[in-house]
Design a protein around this nucleic acid. Structure first.
Length: 497
RNA sequence: GAGCCAUUAGCUCAGUCGGUAGAGCACCUGACUUUUAAUCAGGGUGUCGAUGGUUCGAGUCCAUCAUGGCUCACCA
């Protein structure tokens, strides 16, 4: 450490450096090595729980645990500390006469935040707390930064996101949320695997950003001198695999959309997309319902949950209602009647629904739905029958071609899934893409691009197929009762500082 | 992109009417071998987000900027 560095450190940091040097002078490596653990904190607690003080003292149980010192209560020539590992916290008791003066001196150079390993026996204190009586102490890692306040922890939201590592150390519920996230995804995977779905990986860099209506991130490949886009959906590649005969495929992966950031939107987020040959959107509805209910039961142990104070019942069967009926129910406007664009526009004006130049009747119906219905759908609700104009990849309803065999799942007023019977007619698909290009001309810069290779794939024949997309982050938010998408992303995007 | 709010010690927060910066934890010194947000005695460690302005004097008032939060817009 140079003189200049020393001057730049404040007292807290200077003292930690001094203790580091002190450890070196005692022949202790402050950044130690591998440590063999026999137990986790939680294992010791559950073992000791129903043993009496006497029972523990009779059969001496040797344990070796490692963790971070979260609380430290020195008491002269002895000390109590709370050690934290992934499973939880366990109290340890250190006495100079048990570990020797030399090691105790090293221990005195330790403070909250440092990582140690201890070997010893389990006992219960006067207060009945299961505790490890330390016989051997090993310094594993000295922390040079102090931890946040031991009682309030780290509450500054910005710092929690920017320095998630600190957040994870001091806020156990944050760790729990991310453990839960992992279990939710694991449960989903297992559910689909058991149904015979094949997990695949497709490119995240696309020459044409298709499969959804969104602005992509653009990038460039130097060697090929090629414009590339980060994918906005997984859809078109998975459907190519259905053409290829893989029949039941899914991918859980990151997609990227160059759009606004909010408590429900991060520029990169995780989607599940799934395609099932010879099925339709009704089958997908059943699958969506059963898989989410299954995950809730498996991960939370219940299908009735509470989200931000709202009770939500995920027990099947869920309500199924058409978009047209829901709009009629909410505002009394009946879009099942044939109507001209002019009629739809005047209805929009009457109900103060904002419309854009490129809007057709179907777009206006969707605006009605979003403005008057969406946020009212608290209990899980499948909304089906989306207008063809906003569904360029979905098959039209055979009885009424103004609508598609598509559904979206709404829970707590938010979209959680989007699915349809996939359009497999390449001639129709080409026309839909052309319609999208017209929209683009008319000013919708999120309209779909033409994808000639995808059309080519369809021309080899894609069997009738049902497809599904689930926003995994939102599902995790729902099941872990988190208000912001940033609370279920380990490292949400933040402006550089 | 717009509106509102926030930014003070390592962390959590006070700071009155504009008058020279304050508490708890952490840290330092000392006491303490069954404590548990340990306790007891002593010690304040700071670019008050940044830059301008008003003023004899600004953490405090004004302007601009930065970062974040919430709401809205866009979207999933």
């Amino acid at each position: 450490m140079s003189e200049q560095e020393r001057n730049e450190l404040n007292e807290v940091h200077r003292v930690r450096r001094q203790k580091l040097q002190h450890l070196y002078s005692l022949g202790v490596d402050p950044f130690g090595k591998k440590f063999e653990r026999t137990h986790t904190a939680e294992e010791i607690l559950s073992f000791a729980k129903d043993k009496s003080k006497e029972q523990l003292e009779q059969g001496t149980i040797e344990v070796a645990v490692a963790g971070r010192i979260m609380l430290l209560r020195p008491q002269g020539k002895a000390a109590f500390a709370n050690l934290q590992d992934l499973s939880g916290r366990i109290q340890i008791y250190i006495r100079q006469d048990a570990i020797g003066e030399q090691v105790f001196e090293a221990f005195q150079q330790l403070e909250m935040g440092d990582i140690i390993g201890v070997k010893g026996t389990v006992f219960k204190t006067k207060m009945g707390e299961p505790t490890i009586k330390v016989q051997e102490l090993t310094v594993l890692t000295k922390a040079l930064n102090p931890l946040p306040e031991k009682y309030h922890g780290l509450t500054d939201i910005e710092m929690r996101y920017r320095q998630r590592y600190v957040d994870l150390i001091v806020n156990p519920e944050v760790r729990d949320t991310f453990v839960m996230r992992s279990r939710i995804i694991q449960s989903m995977r297992r559910y689909l695997d058991d149904l015979g779905f094949l997990e695949v990986e497709t490119p995240t860099m696309h020459a044409i950003a298709g499969g959804a209506a969104a602005r992509p991130f653009a990038t460039h490949h130097n060697a090929l001198d090629m414009q590339l886009y980060m994918r906005i959906a997984i859809e078109l590649h998975l459907k190519r695999l259905i053409v290829g005969g893989l029949e039941k495929v899914y991918e859980i992966g990151r997609v990227y959309r160059n759009e606004g950031i909010s408590t429900r939107h991060n520029p990169e987020f995780t989607m599940l997309e799934l395609y099932w040959a010879y099925a339709d959107f009704q089958d997908i509805m059943d699958l969506t319902e059963s898989s989410i209910a299954h995950i809730a039961q498996e991960v939370l142990g219940t299908m009735t949950i509470s989200y931000q104070g709202k009770d939500v019942d995920l027990t099947p069967k869920w309500r199924r209602a058409s978009m047209v009926d829901l709009v009629k129910e909410a505002v009394g406007v009946d879009f099942s009647q044939q109507m001209t664009l002019e009629e739809a526009r005047s209805l929009a004006e009457k109900h103060s629904v904002k419309i854009e130049k490129h809007h057709q009747v179907g777009h206006i119906l969707n605006e009605f739905f979003e403005q008057f219905v969406e946020e009212t759908l608290i209990q899980p609700t499948f909304v089906y029958g989306h207008p063809v104009e906003i569904s360029p990849l979905a098959k039209q309803n055979p009885a009424d071609p103004r609508f598609t065999d598509r559904f979206e799942l709404f829970i707590v007023g938010r979209e959680h899934a989007n699915a349809f019977t996939e359009l497999n007619d390449p001639i129709d698909q080409r026309q839909r893409f052309e319609k999208q290009l017209e929209e683009k001309e008319a000013g919708n810069d999120e309209a779909h691009e033409m994808d000639e290779d995808f059309i080519n794939a369809l021309m080899y024949g894609m069997p009738p197929t049902g497809g599904l997309g689930i926003g995994i982050d939102r599902l995790v938010m729902l099941l872990t009762d988190q208000p912001s998408i940033r609370d279920v992303l380990l490292f949400p995007l933040m402006r550089e500082r």
